[in-house]
Amino acid sequence: MDDYLEIGGRKFTNRLFTGTGKYPSDELIPDIINASGSEVITVALRRVDMDSETDNVMKHIPEHIQLLPNTSGARNASEAVRIAKLARAAGCGNWIKIEVISDNKYLLPDGHETVKATEILAKDGFVVLPYINPDFIIAKQLVSAGAAAVMPLGAPIGTNRGLQTREMIQILIDEIPLPIVVDAGIGKPSHACEAMEMGAAACLVNTAIASADNPVVMARAFSNAIKAGRDAYLSGMGVVHQLARASSPLTGFLRDA
């Protein structure tokens, strides 16, 4: 059986989404993509400078990669919508990752404004991937608003602290009929593997790769972990028990009778 991820009418075999921020050099980006096989890469419009010969991150992104511009810097829905439209006008395509952050201390997303922006942009033909706290009610509203996937955070962005919101993400995976892409907080390949074992559709990893001493090797490690987690999920894992289990301690008498 072919296993692929489908978003916005496009199919992907690799389930690691990568980023472009925090690298010591944008020249590392092609190596990251090669090492990981990542097919989707996010880029902040605020950093894109199409006019620049020397400082244009877009120059380093291979053409076959699905570009996922993001609205980093947007403080409300209206700013996110404007940034998304600027991204499309600049030739970045019609995919958009909505980041509406009105809290610069913890960088937590504003769910209410994110829903508003999603509704406007989805109606305008964008393939919208909103970044949210793993809030089930907000996620349901995003489904109605026309989101193409939902991107819940595992922990506050950039913290590398893993799936602190595990239970809430599991609810989204179980209940939301859209791909759940775990974004933010994933610090180690084992965290990403765990998200995939839980049934996440993909993971977006930036800080953990960019801040590694060897980002290229770390990108490969994440890709492998995500494949392993996905395989484990598809394989139908055994149920995990808290205690060693004797066989039928309570109903064994039925066999003895």
């Binding site: 690298y23 010591p24 050099s25 944008d26 419009l45 605020r46 950093r47 894109v48 400078d49 620049s52 020397t54 400082d55 810097g73 940034i83 600027l86």
Partner: peptide
Amino acid sequence: QPVFKDWQ
């Protein structure tokens, strides 16, 4: 990495 543009 020197960043020349970080806002639009």
